[in-house]
């Protein structure tokens, strides 16, 4: 079985955005960490993880229809 999530990678991480980010297929039970590994996003560059508008973490498990957003550290002004 395959489920789908929506991905938004912000700022410097946008270069890792896959073509199908609006409906990205994953296996059920996939964690944020697994997904980021698959996309090649360096874990060190991941600072803020949010799922459906709520702060998550690398071990959060993704379910069908989740909206996942990832921010690198951002400090400019």
């Amino acid at each position: 079985m395959i489920v789908h999530v929506t991905l938004k990678l912000f700022a410097t991480l946008s270069r890792f955005t896959p073509d199908s980010a609006d409906r990205y297929p994953i296996a059920p039970g996939t964690t944020v960490k697994h997904l980021l590994e698959k996309l090649g996003v360096p874990e060190d560059d991941v600072r803020l993880i949010f799922i459906n508008g709520i702060k998550g973490n690398l071990t959060s498990t993704l379910t069908d229809g989740d909206r996942l957003g990832i921010f690198p550290p951002v400090g400019g002004g």
């Binding site: 700022a11 410097t12 991480l13 550290p73 951002v74 400090g75 400019g76």
Partner: peptide, 16 residues
């Protein structure tokens, strides 16, 4: 940002 000790001073703005 997580714990301050783990951080570099500059973030993504250094490249963007």
């Amino acid at each position: 940002y997580g714990p301050p000790d783990d951080l570099k001073s500059k973030g993504a703005e250094a490249s963007l």
